[in-house]
């Protein structure tokens, strides 16, 4: 599979897919998308890159071990639920704030961080599995 064309285009394709996956994740609250889909897209990006160029390049590009990424996502999701405890509300009650950054109102909320956590878990776990299998 390591044809020259594929190998050359794969990094750009993968970068594009990851960009798209982030976009899909962040729009998920209002339009089709979300952490699960985004994570799957990102995982397939890394998988494709691995098939095209070789697993070691993917590992280098990722820098962190994919399982660490997944674990970080899990922690992020769990901690985003803890925030509500400080407001004396039950675990995982969503908290919202609408600050204005550079003249644009941005919605920042705990469900967003939760969804980013989901994204990282799905991306990390599935990338880990896929890379393992590609190595075998």
């Amino acid at each position: 599979m390591q044809t020259l064309i594929f190998r050359t285009t794969a990094p750009f394709l993968a970068a594009l897919m990851i960009l798209f996956s982030i976009f899909v994740t962040l729009r998920g609250h209002n339009d089709p998308g979300g952490g699960f889909i985004g994570g799957l897209i990102a995982a397939s990006a890394f998988m494709m890159y691995g098939i095209a160029a070789g697993v070691q390049y993917v590992r280098r590009a990722l820098y962190f071990h994919p399982i660490s990424v997944a674990a970080f996502g899990l922690v992020l999701s769990a901690t985003s639920g803890i925030l509500s405890l400080f407001e004396a509300q039950p675990f995982m009650t969503s908290q919202w704030t609408f600050p204005t950054i550079m003249g644009v109102e941005v919605a920042i909320s705990t469900p967003m961080f939760f969804d980013i956590g989901v994204y990282l878990v799905v991306m990390g776990s599935l990338t880990s599995i896929a890379l393992k299998l590609e190595e075998e």
Binding site: G39, L40, V122, S125, L126, I129, L133
Partner: peptide, 10 residues
Amino acid sequence: IVISFSFLAF
């Protein structure tokens, strides 16, 4: 879907 996929991979 995602769970059954990771389960299948396992």
